[in-house]
Design a protein around this nucleic acid. Structure first.
Length: 594
RNA sequence: GGGGGUGUAGUUCAGUUGGUUAGAACGCCUGCCUGUCACGCAGGAGGCCGCGAGUUCGAGUCUCGUCACUCCCGCCA
């Protein structure tokens, strides 16, 4: 017998009629009729209406009791009369006729309403996160998170993966992001770093003959936040497999993602095998390496149709080396002139040169650009884009990189304007064949474009014989509805290839040893070919919960300034603590303290 | 580090070309009410209009600065 409840607040129904029960929970709402008081009692499982008559000894106290107080009510389950049934509650056919009532914990006035989902300011919600998390939607998101993480574990374990923990206090690594540093007391002046990802550890686990590893891994990066990027910490489904090629990884993780999404959402989900798109093709078709495939529009290169076309502005720009990107929008020719002009203005407001257009209707080309174009150019355009009556085409003429970037934004804008985005579906794709190296536009130096752990396609032969900028890596991203869920790769497990790759990127053997000493040392003692990936848990949740912001799927998130308003972190520490660590603050920082 | 947006009651918001005592809804308090479930009715309290300068006879409103939150760029192998 539990002291506090015989049943929870979500389970009582007609089967319990006339039973004596006792339930505990929060006072969600009260409706006071003077001679009779309704209390909606809430716990995690649901809401049960309790009736208190005015002859009850606690009646007066309950009338003045604040919402969100925690009480225990015992009484009899009774059937509601037909006209008082509440169909929106699972417990709506019954109510508890209250006898004894015990106040377990009285609440003060709450800073925002819990029972009503108002848009209270986020900093207030974060400061009182435990109240915020009582609200139905937020509560459900955290329950969903728990369910999904559990389900991921089961699915990975069932596929033969071992869950292995890796250190949180580790060494600063020379990876891309800023490290969080933790000062060492025993070694004054030295610092631990929190892992940006368990990258090196998981590769070392492969070398240690753990065939399939995974972990729901916390990752720490000291970078600025975005709506889809938590400041400080986030979680990845980190996994790695030995003796595999790229396709083995795809085949392993695709069903996991498919099942996670389809089991937890009403939307339909791409069935494995997922579409595979080469990086280069993604850039030319979508202008981005994380395309949203729910958007049916694609980008074409129409530069050729504008060479010596009679349309002066584009002609001259092409001679400067610019390109022309074209987006065909079916069924848009009937839009009024103002719609096209509005889009052109939008482009200019985005800091672009403009968004030209041609309308194709009744086998005729219309619009200001069409009037300037020669007949044969219009014909090549028609063939290139496979134009049909009712289509219109939008043009962006700019230097390649910018044209591509803006075409991507315009593609999204046009899709939204025309309401073309496919609804209630998760569309996955792999982006593969990323370039191994890229040219830093500032320094004109060659550097790793994604990550230095990836195996170059063609191995040593490519590194020796190919133009570095032509070399592709066994590197892949998984993208869902325009969100990059993860990066992965077949890793470079051969020391000589790694030395050569680093040399191309301008790093010496010593640099390699300094930066990745543990790994390059381990490669000397027999390393299996291996690869893996690390889908972001928070982003998966965001997609499934259909939230625009990561904070909505994290129990205790920090704000954009990387502060925890509830715990008041980060914060100053005592001078004793600093002394113990051998740390002295700079004078100007000290000043701010006082 | 840079750019945009927001800031008025506990909360969500309105507030006209600068012009009486700054409003509404929800919440809160008091009273009434035995069938509500967004309970109802009557009354009431609650405001450094983010903060600080400035312009003006007069500033919630205009200008400048500053702070907070948020979104974006940079950054995120």
């Amino acid at each position: 017998m539990n002291l506090y409840r015989s049943h929870n607040c979500g389970e009582l129904n007609l089967n319990h009629i006339n039973k004596d029960v006792y339930i505990s929970g929060w006072v969600n709402k009260k409706r006071d009729h003077g001679g009779l008081l309704f209390i909606d009692l809430r716990d995690e499982y649901g809401i049960t209406q309790c009736v208190v008559n005015s002859d009850n000894s606690k009646f007066k106290i309950l009338e003045s009791l604040k919402l969100e107080s925690v009480i225990k009510i015992s009484g009899k389950v009774i059937r509601r009369s037909d006209d008082t049934i509440n169909k929106s509650l699972p417990t709506g056919e019954i109510e508890v006729l209250s006898r004894n009532i015990e106040i377990l914990s009285e609440s003060e006035q709450i800073p925002f309403q819990v029972a009503v989902d108002d848009d209270s300011p986020e900093d207030l919600r974060l400061k009182y996160r435990y109240l915020d998390l009582r609200r139905e939607k937020n509560h459900k998101n955290i329950i969903l998170r728990s369910k999904i993480i559990n389900s991921i574990r089961q699915k990975m374990i069932n596929r033969g993966f071992l869950e292995i923990q890796t250190p949180i206090l580790t060494a600063s690594s020379p990876e891309g992001a800023r490290d969080f540093l933790v000062p060492s007391r025993l070694h004054k002046g030295k610092f631990y770093a929190l892992p940006q990802a368990p990258q090196i550890f998981k590769q070392l686990l492969m070398i240690a003959n753990f065939d399939k590893y995974f972990q729901i891994a916390p990752c720490f990066r000291d970078e600025d936040a975005r709506a889809d990027r938590s400041p400080g910490e986030f979680y990845q489904l980190d996994f790695e497999m030995a003796f595999v090629e790229q396709n083995d990884i795809f085949q392993t993780i695709e069903p996991v993602l498919f099942e996670i999404f389809s089991e937890n959402s009403k939307c339909s989900v791409s069935k494995p095998p997922f579409k595979i798109i080469k990086y280069k093709d993604s850039i030319s078709l979508y202008g981005t390496d994380k395309p949203d495939l729910r958007n049916p529009l694609i980008i074409n290169d129409a530069t050729k149709s504008f060479i010596k076309s009679g349309f002066k502005i584009f002609e001259e720009n092409i001679e400067k080396g610019f390109v022309v990107k074209a987006i065909k929008t079916p069924g848009s020719s009937s839009k009024p002139r103002g719609w096209f002009d509005k889009l052109n203005n939008w482009a200019r407001n985005e800091g672009q040169k403009g968004l030209g257009y041609i309308i194709f209707e009744n086998n005729e080309f219309k619009g200001p650009i069409a009037n300037n174009l020669k007949e044969e150019n219009l014909r090549t355009l028609k063939d290139l884009l496979d134009l049909e009556n009712g289509d219109s085409i939008f043009f962006i003429c700019d230097e390649e990189n910018n044209a591509s970037k803006f075409a991507s934004i315009a593609r999204t804008k046009l899709c939204n304007e025309l309401g073309l985005l496919e609804k209630n579906i998760f569309k996955f794709c792999w982006i593969v064949d990323f370039p191994m190296f890229e040219l830093d536009p500032q320094t004109k130096k060659i550097d790793f474009s994604h990550n230095p752990f990836s195996m170059p396609q063609g191995g040593m032969d490519s590194l020796v014989n190919k133009d570095p900028l032509e070399i592709l890596a066994w590197q892949f991203d998984i993208v869902c509805n325009g969100v990059e869920l993860s990066s992965g790769a077949i890793r470079n497990h051969k020391l000589d290839i790694m030395i050569k790759a680093f040399e191309i990127a301008g790093y010496s053997k010593d640099d390699l040893r300094d930066r990745f000493g543990s790994l390059s040392e381990a490669f000397k003692f027999g390393a299996p070919p291996h690869g893996g990936s690390a889908p972001g848990i928070d982003r998966i949740l965001m997609l499934i919960a259909e939230e625009e912001n990561l904070r909505e799927v994290v129990a205790f998130p920090m704000n954009q300034q990387a502060e925890d308003l509830m715990m008041r972190s980060p914060n100053f520490v005592s001078s004793n603590s600093l002394d113990e660590l051998g740390i002295d603050l700079k004078p100007e920082k000290k000043k701010k303290l006082t």
